[in-house]
């Protein structure tokens, strides 16, 4: 366990691994995800308040409901939406982290 630190896997490989897994999940595996209502939706229907849900303000957006507008193939449409979403989240969260850290100089790696 302790000898591992001598030859640790470089961070870039860990980062690449997480990114590849995330893109595969969002871009490919998501097509095979269960289409059943999730726990809350199911309970809402069972208990009788699902009809209280109102139309979403962004329901006409180009990526609404995880499908890309204008792309007819369901597999491609959903996969593309997933990949775009993953990239947007990575950029927004990564950018937010940079802002929070507020380093005085941009290039202070060492």
């Amino acid at each position: 366990m302790t000898a591992e630190s001598k030859r640790a896997v470089p961070f870039k490989w860990v980062a690449l691994g997480i990114a590849v897994v995330a893109l595969l999940l969002a871009g490919v595996v998501s097509y095979y995800a269960s289409a059943n209502p999730d726990g809350l939706e199911y309970v809402a229907e069972e208990t009788g308040f699902l009809d209280r849900a109102s139309e979403h303000g962004a329901a006409d957006g180009p990526l609404a409901d995880y499908s890309t507008k204008g792309v007819d193939d369901a597999r491609l449409s959903g996969g593309l939406a997933g990949v775009i979403g993953t990239a947007v989240v990575l950029l927004v969260a990564g950018g937010l982290v940079l802002l929070v850290r507020r380093r005085p100089t941009a290039s202070s790696d060492e």
């Binding site: 969002a26 989240v89 990575l90």
Partner: peptide, 24 residues
């Protein structure tokens, strides 16, 4: 790591897994 973790959570949230009758 933080940005990557957020991206991973987003991607994994797309994967609904079935739980019992008609629910995920």
């Amino acid at each position: 790591l933080a940005g990557l973790v957020a991206a991973f959570v987003f991607a994994t949230q797309m994967i609904n897994f079935p739980v019992g009758a008609g629910t995920s």
